[in-house]
Amino acid sequence: MLKKKPSSVTSSPPLSSSPPSSPYQNDAVSDDAYAMMGPTLPSDLITSILLRLPVKSLGKFKCVSKQWLHTISDPHFVSMHRSLSLHNPNLLLLKKSPVLQEAHMKKCTRIDVCSLNFDGSCKNLEFSLYLNDDAKYIEMLPSKWDIICFVSENGFYVCNPSKQEMLKLPEASCCTSEEVNAGMGYVKERDEYVLVHLFDKSLDIHVD
């Protein structure tokens, strides 16, 4: 998606005879204070910078001011941010390992997530998620947009790496076949994630 055309500033030709207008709103501060505080950017430039921040920083900066909260929460901003992120993809590395715990505790699996720049030059994120699932096989499914989907014999999980959240999906089908043909998709028109799970009932394992 194209970035929003920088507004007003460029629309008037520099040759116009109108008095010089500063690109910065000085807010009536003296020159000394101005020099100390640095320039104040117009809000559309601040938005352009915010559009290039990782989601976690955006969550944090919602607390900067009411205007920033409003800007970052705006659905148009969210969709622009998503489109822009697609032009600058990250590599996501996942490593899963069982967590050995005390006997009385629930067994779980740890998933280490690491995100790198596409050329591997810079590490953007590194964290671990815990799944209350001790299944031997936890597999990652084809995932779309900003959600990663996992499956084990106990059910489906979705992970939002930006928010470092993990959620178990409600049980849906009674499929017990070992092979899972499923994938996560995203329907842009409805802004909904869809999990498609194909299975063959005749392969179900029945235990009498």
Binding site: M37, L41, C63, W68
Partner: peptide
Amino acid sequence: CRTLASLIKDRTIIEVRKMFNVENDF
């Protein structure tokens, strides 16, 4: 824009308010 974004991404809210001259109206 990208350079400024990577510069501020790990900053605290107070640092960012100062950098962009934003008043805390909460």
